[in-house]
Design a protein around this nucleic acid. Structure first.
Lengths: 260, 260
DNA sequence: CGTTGGATTGAATCATATCAATCAGAGTGG
DNA sequence: CCACTCTGATTGATATGATTCAATCCAACG
């Protein structure tokens, strides 16, 4: 028997404002956009009032597949999503992870079909906003449009950073870089407390994100662990020394273009 | 004595329609956008009538640097541009190459500052369209807006593909993939004749794009050469067997989202 | 308990990096 | 017209980081 939507399986703590009203998809999106720039009240209101469907997506289930022609924008409400492709030899490459409050696949608004897959790492809850409603907001609210557009551009910047990371950095630095980015994003999303946040990934998924082997990620992880900079056991990431970690990762958060 | 703009130094053959009117920056952009979707006449006209400055950029000179706050959109008229960052140890990572007719840095429209550099691989001619004029078109012409937006999204898709390529593929496949992509884009831009196009890169730059060593690129190149699939000597790339090359590269042009 | 998914370990192998040298061609200046 | 200099391509020898494969361990769960 499958148990999607089981509450204790929701990995990230539910966003505070949403505790009693998990269908506030528009609010979540608005909040997220506000991290990247000014969102004046009328525009904010327009986004908040967007009608959305809430859906529970089980662990390792896909919401979108290569070739699909999506008709909704996705907003992560809880859990953890990931974007990936499958290579010819069956190798999976992870393109990105998406924390609660983030909006993967905004690009589907203006790209006809998916050239990648979007799935859930753990049981997750997502909001679906029909494209039509988004187009309407985009047409009528220039500020919202600007932020939505910018959002898609920042995602591009993140992909570039992943490109650099996976192409240039040795394993320990790459792993440290991933930790830095995810922790920074978790903090921006209000999901981190102090020096830790939930990170319910498997070493295998991390390996597929970094373009390494699970075995090698494991060994590298032990190195980082023994350095005392960071700890990642089970589903929890604890960053003991962010600056030290950022140092060896050459992590500079500029590319995330966060205001906060 | 520097000789920018010297005509015989323009590496790609000038775009046909531009032979006598190199300032037709808007036309070039419109033509490029039309590769990605429908561009109705009023929108096309609006883009064509955009006022632009033409500038010659010398070999290995930069047009934009990290931290800059650009005020123009760039259109490549001739030559070859590249986007890159410099790592902590001085290692350069190339994020992308830009052929004539392509428009790098469209994302500067909605991202405040550059988190990377844009330079010229060889003497190049570029068009500069002020942001203000672009904003005006974007506000008033929804179809043009849609295509511009899509253009930035496709660039994101290309970055993702580069991520996959550099993370997963062995050197020979990665190199083949780069050749496939650049040749496909050159063809779409009308810059290829038959089975060849200009590709005035150094092996070192290719190495920096693939995250490999120049030495290793050299050896890999000899492998590909001896396979008879492809030849790249001097500034000319000749693809003898595109399908064969695409096969070993697992190259599927879908991610470029080209109509033509 | 037995099963399972994920983490961990070890040993052998392979791909790529590194370092250092040589080579070829194009442009330069005497 | 010839050496001189440069940049980029090429080669060789060696080092190393990462993969591969196979086994074991561990904790959660039914």
């Amino acid at each position: 028997m499958r148990r999607f939507a089981r509450d204790d399986a929701l990995v990230f703590p539910p966003f505070k404002r949403l505790r009693h009203a998990v269908s506030l998809v528009g609010e979540t999106l608005a909040r997220h956009l506000a991290c990247m720039g000014e969102l004046p009240e009328p525009d904010r209101a327009a986004i908040c009032s967007l009608d959305a469907e809430v859906r529970d997506l089980g662990r390792m289930r896909d919401q979108l597949r290569e070739g699909d022609r999506p008709t909704n924008v996705v907003v992560v409400l809880s859990g953890l999503l990931y974007r990936y492709t499958i290579g010819p030899a069956g190798a999976r490459q992870v393109h990105s992870f998406y924390l609660p409050t983030e909006a993967p696949c905004l690009e589907t608004l203006y790209i006809d079909y998916m050239d990648n897959n979007l799935g859930a790492v753990v049981d997750s809850r997502i909001g679906l906003i029909p494209h039509d409603l988004m187009y309407d907001v985009i047409d009528r609210f220039p500020h919202a449009r600007k932020l939505l557009w910018r959002q898609t551009l920042v995602q591009g910047a993140v992909f570039r950073e992943w490109l650099v990371r996976n192409s240039n950095l040795p394993a320990h630095a790459a792993l440290a870089h991933l930790f830095c980015e995810l922790f920074t994003r978790a903090k921006a999303a209000g999901l981190a407390e102090d020096d830790s946040c939930e990170l319910p990934l498997t070493q295998e998924l991390v390996a597929e994100a970094l373009g390494l082997t699970a075995v090698h990620v494991n060994r590298t992880l032990q190195l980082l662990r023994s350095s005392g900079l960071v700890e990642w056991r089970g589903r929890k990431l604890t960053v003991h020394d962010f600056d030290g970690l950022a140092e060896i990762a050459d992590f500079k958060p500029r590319y995330l273009h966060l205001r906060c």
